[in-house]
Amino acid sequence: MLRDVDTVQVVATGTLIFLIIGGAGVGVLTLALLGSGVLHLGHPDVDGPVSLEAVAGFTGAFGFGAAIVNELLGGRTSGMIAVAAAGGALAAVPTAWLAARLSRAARTMRTDPTPTRDHLAGAIGLVVTPIPTGGYGEVRVRLAGQPVKLNARADRPIPIGARIFVVEALSETSVHVETY
């Protein structure tokens, strides 16, 4: 009679292999998130049916899905491992399709253009440091929804708190303003 014997549950070889495949999928996903084009097929500007994200989605879902099915079946025979692989493929195909669609949508998403000094003209704001005659003060305007503090010149003195509008952008960080 055995006493005080620890039991160790052995992971099936098929499950271990499937977990390694799933881990490789996570590694490929890491490459995809870092922007690497290692597995991208075709021209780099064209998103083909096999993008890096699709490979990552397929590999990860296949490996982890097959490992789950293999453990649920108690897969110790080659037939059970084949069924587990089919279950992994059943999970992998829609995952790869979804990963490709989501990554394509993220890459082709419309965004606003980056604001430049040309966008400053006409902006409305407030004087935060008084503007003297012939010198610079500071104003705060909203540019693309963000508050921006700029150096400002004016033809006449403007006190703190006065509402202004930008007539011209003198440089990237300075503007010519008038009271509003």
Rank of each mutant, 00 (worst) to 15 (best):
66 A>W: 04
67 A>T: 02
67 A>E: 00
67 A>K: 01
67 A>Q: 02
68 I>V: 10
68 I>H: 00
69 V>M: 00
70 N>D: 14
71 E>C: 07
72 L>W: 04
73 L>H: 04
73 L>E: 14
73 L>T: 08
73 L>Q: 02
75 G>Y: 05
77 T>E: 14
78 S>D: 12
78 S>C: 06
79 G>P: 05
79 G>F: 14
79 G>Q: 14
79 G>E: 14
80 M>F: 07
81 I>D: 13
81 I>M: 11
82 A>I: 09
82 A>L: 12
82 A>E: 10
83 V>I: 11
84 A>G: 08
85 A>E: 12
85 A>R: 07
85 A>Q: 09
86 A>Q: 08
86 A>D: 09
86 A>R: 07
86 A>I: 15
87 G>I: 07
87 G>R: 06
87 G>M: 09
88 G>T: 03
91 A>N: 04
92 A>K: 11
92 A>R: 11
92 A>G: 11
94 P>M: 03
94 P>L: 04
95 T>Y: 05
95 T>W: 05
96 A>R: 01
96 A>N: 03
97 W>D: 00
98 L>T: 13
99 A>P: 01
99 A>Q: 02
99 A>Y: 02
100 A>R: 11
101 R>E: 10
101 R>T: 09
102 L>K: 12
103 S>D: 03
103 S>G: 07
103 S>T: 08
104 R>T: 14
104 R>G: 06
106 A>G: 04
107 R>S: 08
107 R>N: 06
107 R>T: 06
107 R>P: 03
108 T>G: 00
109 M>P: 01
109 M>K: 10
109 M>A: 11
111 T>P: 04
111 T>W: 11
112 D>Q: 15
112 D>L: 15
113 P>R: 02
113 P>Y: 04
115 P>C: 09
115 P>F: 09
116 T>D: 14
116 T>P: 04
116 T>L: 08
118 D>F: 09
119 H>K: 08
119 H>M: 10
120 L>S: 00
120 L>A: 01
120 L>N: 00
120 L>I: 05
121 A>V: 15
121 A>T: 15
121 A>R: 12
